[in-house]
Design a protein around this nucleic acid. Structure first.
Lengths: 115, 115
DNA sequence: GTATCATATAATTATATGCTTATATATACA
DNA sequence: TGTATATATAAGCATATAATTATATGATAC
């Protein structure tokens, strides 16, 4: 019988497998404080757009993130309704803030804003 | 020049890559409450001894666990001195207790005790 | 010493992963 | 409309991973 607080080990290991990639882990930390669109990730990570899309797809497949269209862009954000969000959140709190990446984007005029 | 931040995320993703395997994640949760020797893991996971040894080696390589010989057995335990132990510990707290595996071992007379 | 038990390592193999390039889709805008 | 922009998907390839089998090491028991 399962308790509500603890997570199935199978599921947890799947989550960690995804977080076990530096790009995806950094994405999650960035998303903790800012929604981001695909082209922002492309600029931040200096990786190809398909590579970024494929990482995001993996995160979306297990619903760690959700997507939302805003104008011509698709923004990604953390799915705080995920069953295991408490685990995710506590993990992210241990990681270094990535605000400087966003600031650098803004300095380069690459930050997308849809307000 | 590397910032300390990038080193941390690099290290964190390495840790999660190791925790992203169900066997190793379960090992860590087991070790949270009981030191275990290799043959106990072999019995618990019903996997070959070399497979178990190789998992333990990976955990040991980044010093998540430490080993100690006791009589003819080598016991593994969590390395609480690891720089990122607070992260590891908080992760493990979200996972379901594995005490029943140990109890089952004892019931089968396979629990090793070196006191 | 020699045999045995517990564990580690090496070589091999099958599968998984992450990137690339090429192409598809879907919205925006002229 | 038609074209540009943003993103997704597919196929292919190189590397990484996790298992297996075979063998080595190292402590203990006789």
């Amino acid at each position: 019988m399962k308790t509500t607080e603890s997570i199935d080990l199978q599921k947890a290991s799947q989550i960690f497998k995804l977080l076990g990639d530096k790009t995806r882990l950094t994405m999650m930390k960035l998303l903790e404080s800012h929604d981001c669109c695909v082209c922002e990730f492309v600029a931040i990570f200096k990786m190809s757009q398909p590579a970024i899309s494929q990482h995001l797809r993996k995160l979306r497949d297990i619903e760690l993130v959700k997507e939302e269209r805003r104008g011509q862009w698709i923004f990604y954000s953390i799915n705080q309704e995920h069953e295991d969000y408490p685990l995710i959140s506590s993990v992210l709190k241990h990681l270094p803030d990535q605000g400087s990446s966003i600031e650098k984007l803004e300095a380069q005029g690459l930050r997308i804003c849809c307000e």
